[in-house]
Design a protein around this nucleic acid. Structure first.
Lengths: 218, 218
DNA sequence: AATAAAATTTAGACTAGTCTAAAAATATTT
DNA sequence: AAATATTTTTAGACTAGTCTAAATTTTATT
């Protein structure tokens, strides 16, 4: 049996190592897990013994295929629950993450597959992230970050990199949601802020914002 | 913070002590918790320290008001999730218990209240048990067990005492569901089996069954 | 290449929850 | 009321996951 804590470590390694391929360091894991490096070392050893991870002392860690399967499954559950919370229970997109962190650990194949069907097999969660299907396949989306968009072009917002409540509330208060159409008006070389046109206003966003919003050309 | 294990012990005490009032013995708790009496003693001490239970050595345990609030809250969550599983995700009534055992521990007021609203504030779960409202109030239902029903009278099935998968499957296979109308035809004094009439058949049920099915006069 | 700095691991300890085996208290039987 | 059986508690140990502090390895700097 896999424990809740093991699942969370696997998820962290997956996210830190761009889907588990590249090696992840102990300190990075400690930071996202809000724990100490020594605890991470212990857990990595355990994951390695259980064949969820490959680990060589001082060399960081990667996931095995089995570990990647666990991670993708949790991500599937997390994102499906997020869709449920927003679409059926009227949560806003900045509120869902925390609750989904718990729901993602409920272990029932039937539950998650029926939920998927109930939601009519959504392809993306409320932040634009793709939802793996039953077999673990992602639907890839071609997207660029706002920071790299071309001045003069028009784009659709398709996702966020930062899904913190504060960033999402910022977007809400500026009337930016997934699907919103924006046109790039100007990039200020001094601080890399960007002026964008929305439906009937223009706003200037900081480089910070521009790095966390994903767009797709329309 | 209250742990998952603490919640489960509190729930067990609540159920064993007819809603927490009457004193519950260590061994009884050990049995439902699938653990040893010595572990129960340890946990009872802890619940007592945290003021969820009143405990005197060798005298059994009762819940405090705080403990009762915790128990009712878990029951509310358990039963609402059961309704969700049956009504929205097409689970059958014998499949829901196990999954609901996990979902009941998700801690989010908003989640459970929105779920309640989404389900349109159901008053009973799929087994006929009442669902406490936000304030913890139950809707009482007047019901008798089939074993005590009068020969000649007509009743509606309103609940089950045993919600094990095997009992519920037995009912399914005999076309008995909540809401089914039955008439008591005969009580056999030899073994207390009872002959009942359904819509277009008559069946004989054992005393065992008769003790686990709740009825309401119509 | 030697040294300093940073990252990682080990060693030993702590908590929650569990266990076994023995001791103590209560309940039951004679 | 004494003896026996049952129930409950204590004592001490174990695992999972964590911690601090010290030791080790790797990386960066001179």
């Amino acid at each position: 049996m896999i424990t809740l804590t093991e699942e969370n470590y696997i998820k962290a390694i997956y996210h830190l190592g761009s889907n588990g391929d590249t090696s992840v360091n102990t300190n990075a894991i400690a930071e996202v897990m809000q724990t100490k490096a020594s605890s991470v070392t212990d857990m990595i050893k355990k994951l390695s013994e259980k064949n969820y991870a490959d680990y060589k002392k001082y060399q960081g860690v990667t996931l095995t295929e089995a570990g990647r399967v666990v991670a993708v499954n949790i991500i599937r559950k997390h994102r499906l629950w997020e869709v449920f919370l927003v679409e059926k229970l009227n949560f806003s997109w900045d509120e869902v993450h925390e609750v989904a962190e718990h729901l993602e650990h409920i272990k029932s194949e039937k539950l998650i597959n029926q939920l998927d069907a109930f939601l009519e097999f959504p392809k993306h969660d409320p932040h634009g992230d793709p939802i793996p299907d039953k077999e673990g396949n992602f639907q890839h989306i071609e997207k660029i970050i706002l920071a790299k968009a071309e001045v003069g072009s028009t784009y659709k917002c398709v996702g966020v990199d930062d899904d913190s409540s504060s960033f999402l509330k910022y977007l809400d208060s500026n009337k930016i949601a997934l699907g919103t159409i924006i046109t790039i008006k100007h990039r200020e070389p001094y601080d890399n802020s960007i002026k964008i046109a929305l439906e009937n206003t223009e706003i200037v966003v900081s480089q910070n914002v521009a790095k966390n919003l994903y767009l797709k050309k329309v």
